[in-house]
Amino acid sequence: MPTYSLAAAVNAELDIRKSRFIALVVPVADRVSAMRIIDGLRAQHRAASHVCWALMAGGQSGMSDDGEPSGTAGRPMLEVLRHHELDGVLATVVRYYGGVKLGAGGLVRAYTDAVAAALKNAERIERVALVNLQIEIDYADEARVRRWVEQQAYILAESSHSSVVRLLVHLPAGALDAARAALRDLTQGRIRFPSLVP
């Protein structure tokens, strides 16, 4: 089942019984970059009552009610991201309290609706899992292999030159076996694939 990220950040603002809910949903690489965005929002909205968030980022997912009653903000926001099959995405909602209590059910609806409103205009893009392929080749094969990597639109992440040429290529996980076979053909079997040291 595919997962998606966003092509760009999206936002929305809702006024619910005098409270302002400002939603921002952004694509993020990891939890560290998500925390940077949250810190930035806290600095930008110092007068806000709450800055709640939900992060879908594989093993780094998380959420915060930021002082709202437990389970009324972060979890509902996370559920919206799950429902949209999103990953690598941070949803934040800044709330300015307007003086009227919404109750637990009202808060769940407000935070859910704020994120859903932002996502109405979102362009989803399919997330493709990338893997690293380490390559060792002779100098004679370097230009040919580099040209092939470029033609496939893969990412040449690193290269080093010693007695052999070592290249590190990022490519979609599903293309790994075919890439190895194509590179063996291209170098008439001279290429080597040392395993990556974790």
Score class of each variant (00 low, 15 high):
Gln44Arg: 15
Leu55Cys: 01
Asp66Ile: 15
Ser49Gly: 10
Leu41Asp: 03
Gly58Asp: 10
Cys52Leu: 08
Asp65Gln: 07
Met56Gly: 02
Gly74Cys: 05
Ala48Glu: 00
His45Tyr: 13
Leu55Tyr: 01
Glu68Ala: 10
Gly67Asp: 11
Asp66Phe: 12
Pro69Thr: 03
Ile38Val: 11
Pro76Cys: 06
Ala57Cys: 15
Gly71Thr: 08
Met63Val: 10
Ala43Arg: 13
Ala57Phe: 02
Met63Trp: 12
Gln60Ser: 13
Glu68His: 10
Val51Ala: 00
Leu41Ser: 03
Met77Glu: 08
Ala57Leu: 02
Gly58Lys: 01
Val51His: 00
Ala73Lys: 06
Asp39Trp: 05
Asp39Ile: 02
Gly71Glu: 07
Val51Tyr: 00
Ile38Met: 01
Pro69Lys: 06
Gly67Ile: 12
Ser64His: 06
Leu55Glu: 01
Gly40Ala: 11
Pro76Ala: 06
Ala73Ile: 11
Ala57Arg: 03
Gly59Lys: 15
Gln60Gly: 14
Ala57Met: 08
Glu68Thr: 04
Gly40Asp: 10
Ser70Gln: 13
Met35Thr: 10
Met63Pro: 06
Ile38Gln: 01
Met77Ser: 07
Arg42Met: 02
Gly59Gln: 14
Gly62Leu: 05
Arg46Glu: 09
Met63Tyr: 13
Leu55Asp: 00
Met35Pro: 01
Ile38Thr: 04
His45Glu: 04
Ala47Ser: 14
Ser61Thr: 10
Ala57Lys: 04
Gly59Ser: 15
Ile38Gly: 00
Leu41Val: 05
Ser70Arg: 12
Ala43Met: 09
Trp53Phe: 12
Ala47Leu: 09
Gly67Pro: 13
Ala54Trp: 02
Gly58Val: 02
Gly62Lys: 04
Ile37Asp: 02
Met35Glu: 13
Ala54Leu: 03
Arg36Ile: 14
Met63Ile: 09
Glu68Tyr: 07
Asp66Gly: 13
Leu41Met: 09
Gly71Arg: 09
His45Asp: 07
Ala54Pro: 01
Asp65Lys: 04
Ile38Arg: 00
Glu68Phe: 03
Met77Tyr: 06
Ile38Phe: 00
Arg46Ile: 07
Gly71Gln: 06
Ser61Met: 12
Gln44Lys: 13
Pro76Thr: 05
Ala43Thr: 09
Ser64Asn: 15
Gly59Ile: 11
Met77Val: 09
Ser70Pro: 08
Met77Thr: 11
Arg46Gln: 10
Ala57Pro: 04
Ala47His: 09
Pro76Ile: 07
His50Ala: 03
Ala43Glu: 12
Asp65Ile: 05
Ser64Cys: 14
Met63Phe: 14
Met63Gly: 12
Arg42Val: 03
Met35Cys: 05
Gly59Tyr: 10
Thr72Gln: 11
Gly62Ala: 11
His50Cys: 02
Ala54Glu: 04
Met35Gln: 14
Gly59Leu: 14
Arg75Gly: 00
Cys52Ile: 09
Ile37Val: 15
Trp53Asn: 02
Ala73Asp: 05
Met77Asn: 08
Trp53Gln: 08
Met77Gln: 12
Gly40Phe: 00
Gly59Cys: 11
Met63Thr: 11
Arg36His: 13
Asp39Lys: 14
Ala43Asp: 11
Ala47Lys: 15
Gly74Met: 06
Ser49Met: 00
Trp53Asp: 02
Gly67Arg: 14
Val51Cys: 03
Gly40Lys: 03
Ile37Cys: 11
Ala48Pro: 00
Gln44Gly: 06
Met77Phe: 05
